[in-house]
Amino acid sequence: MDTEAGKDGGGALYLRILDDIRDRILSGEWPPGHRIPFEHELADGYRCSRMTVNKAMSELARAGLIERRRRSGSFVRMPESQAAVLEIQDIRAEVEALGLPYRYERVSRKLREANRKDEADTGFAAGTGIVDLVCRHIAGPAPFCLEQRSISLAAVPEAASESFETVAPSPWLVARIPWSAGEHRIRAMPADDHVAAMLGVARNAACLVVQRRTWSGDLPVTQVVLTYPGETHSLVARFAPKDG
């Protein structure tokens, strides 16, 4: 019969269980969203009490590695991403910093002319050529971010011939045109049907929405709306006190 003080290989048995599960999570063997065996299954496998298993699982939950759902079991948590508010982040770098494989999908691309609404909302002069893009960024097995972007052909005419099938718009733009000013607007929004389908979340699930505009001199370059599942993303701003 085991006890929490019982030894197995030089350490408490619950530490062995904790280390085994943590190693499977960090190695990617159990990816985000994977359901961990139920506590009674782990207890049978390790030939120990459920109390010992529960202690290990509680510690994994406190460490943020697993999520315990009543009646459903325990699941590997998606790591939480933190993006700086005042910077233009490379989404691929964000995903890879979490230790997850990155994948990019272009969902749609359309050429059109800016209308009066665009002029009011984005600063693109009516009649200006625009490339509208919808893209999805994926981290491991799960959608990470939905990108809805408009690019002004007055600022970046070569965007008219770029398909964006294999390259994401942000690094492509950064490599071609210097931006001199940017504006971020951040808000929480419930997922509509389109966003819910693209991000694999429930309709009306809380989402974090970052709307960004950039300029090169006085010329508007792009507007993008980045939508993230609210449970897996947070924004960080670093600041300092003003002199005096």
Rank of each mutant, 00 (worst) to 15 (best):
D20K: 02
D20V: 06
D20T: 12
D20S: 05
D20R: 06
D20M: 09
I21Q: 06
R22Q: 06
R22A: 13
R22D: 00
R22S: 02
R22F: 00
D23W: 10
R24Q: 08
R24N: 10
R24Y: 03
I25N: 02
I25T: 03
L26P: 07
L26Y: 10
S27G: 06
S27Y: 09
S27F: 10
G28T: 02
G28R: 04
G28C: 04
E29K: 06
E29A: 11
E29C: 00
E29T: 11
W30H: 01
W30F: 12
P31L: 09
P31E: 03
P31Y: 05
P31C: 07
P32T: 13
G33A: 06
G33H: 09
G33V: 10
G33W: 09
H34W: 14
H34I: 04
R35E: 04
R35S: 02
I36M: 05
I36T: 13
I36A: 10
I36D: 02
I36W: 09
P37D: 06
P37T: 08
F38Y: 11
F38N: 04
F38D: 14
F38H: 15
F38K: 14
E39R: 15
H40L: 13
E41K: 12
E41L: 14
L42E: 05
A43K: 07
A43H: 09
A43G: 04
G45I: 04
G45C: 12
G45D: 11
G45M: 09
Y46G: 09
R47D: 15
R47L: 15
R47N: 15
C48G: 08
S49G: 15
R50P: 07
R50D: 07
M51P: 03
T52R: 05
T52P: 06
T52Y: 06
V53R: 04
V53F: 05
N54C: 06
N54A: 12
N54D: 05
K55R: 15
K55V: 13
K55H: 15
A56C: 08
A56K: 09
A56D: 03
A56V: 10
A56Q: 05
M57D: 01
M57T: 02
S58F: 00
S58N: 06
L60I: 00
L60R: 00
L60H: 01
L60E: 00
A61M: 03
A61I: 00
A61E: 04
R62W: 07
R62P: 01
R62E: 12
R62M: 11
A63G: 03
A63E: 13
G64M: 05
G64S: 11
G64Q: 06
L65K: 02
L65Y: 07
L65V: 01
I66C: 05
I66A: 08
E67N: 04
E67F: 03
E67G: 05
E67A: 14
R68H: 00
R68P: 00
R69T: 09
R69H: 11
R69W: 05
R69E: 08
R69S: 07
R70Y: 13
R70L: 14
R70N: 11
R70E: 10
R70A: 11
R71G: 08
R71Q: 15
R71P: 07
R71N: 12
R71C: 12
R71I: 08
S72H: 11
S72E: 13
G73H: 07
S74Q: 02
S74A: 14
S74F: 02
S74I: 03
F75R: 10
V76G: 01
V76E: 03
V76A: 01
V76Y: 00
